[in-house]
Amino acid sequence: MLEVEQISYCIKGKSILSDISFELERGDFLAIIGTNGAGKSTLIKTLSQELRPSHGEVRWKNRSLSSWKPQDIALERAVMTQHVGLSQDFKVEEVVLMGRYPHFKHQPTSEDKDCVWRAMQKTQVEHLAQRNYYSLSGGERQRVQFARALTQMDSPQRGAKMLMLDEPLNNLDLKHQHYALQLAQDFVKEGNILLLVIHDINLAAMYADKILLLKNGRKLAFGDTAEVLSEQNLQRAYEFNLKVTAHPFVGCPAVHFYPT
């Protein structure tokens, strides 16, 4: 479904990403992990066409991404970037409604409004609908942006869709971090694809079924969660003391960093 073929990205002769390839199918939940500067966000930016790769190609549904019209790809791909600033103070429901823009021309239909309401309920911001965005806390803003991305992908008739989240858990309390990842999981279960950039390896281990481990812009490992999250791989990527055990309640890998 999503084929990434030998993607490289250089800027001013410096290579940020080199030779990244992987494939995702319907129902794949991919977590992209790695240290600061490993190229996680750059990868998301090339996949969301914010940056043009210096080499390589990305295909979605067997068509090169660059051949998709922006209006069409917006119906099948939503992106939540790391720092979403709002230059003017909109109401929360107006911000979430922006996610429906690819779906209507000038006037939102009642279906669009239902979608907005559904997404706000999912991320638990419906009580903030009439509030101004600037009056929200950081975590509340994050949940509003997440609702916007979810409502953009709320169109069952389009088939598989992909959602790209670049560190969506910033500012969220632990409970809401799990809520957000559960919503991401629900989205994947509907036959969609999700790409998640995340720092917390344990959350990635708990929710993602595929992991891409990056180091210095290169692919260190890609595959099933349990396979990639080996002590050897993680030590190479993070160069830190760590142990991998099984999570006592869920059974997935649990990674423990510890000081010397």
Binding site: A78, T81, F90
Partner: peptide, 11 residues
Amino acid sequence: ALGEAEAIHLG
């Protein structure tokens, strides 16, 4: 208002 990249992602 969300930003240029975000606007493009919205089509």
